[in-house]
Amino acid sequence: MSDLKLRVKEMIIERLKLEGMTPDQIDDGAPLFGEGLGLDSIDALELVLGIEQVFSVKIEDEAAGLKAFKSVQALTDFIAEHAKA
């Protein structure tokens, strides 16, 4: 697992208080919302705030969110692409 992907998973677990879950239990390709992790709209806001705080990457609107929250892999790619060098 890439270092960034591991940090993304750790952020998700910490921010959403997914107690008892470990990074390797989160499937890279599974959707974060609906099926998969089954997150809701409050979780979405928590993730947006967490991503901003931990990675200094802003998810500006729902269109960006739709892309970034497709899966852990998509979110990792989104952060890598938008993080300041």
Partner: peptide
């Protein structure tokens, strides 16, 4: 305001009286 996304907003608030905090909380409003 702590942040907002897709119509959901997180706010942090404090109720105080004469400089003493009586209640602190974060609220999510849609």
């Amino acid at each position: 305001a702590d942040g907002a996304f897709a119509g959901m907003m997180k706010i942090r608030g404090t109720v105080s009286c004469d400089g003493r905090d009586l209640c602190t909380a974060a609220l999510l409003v849609k």
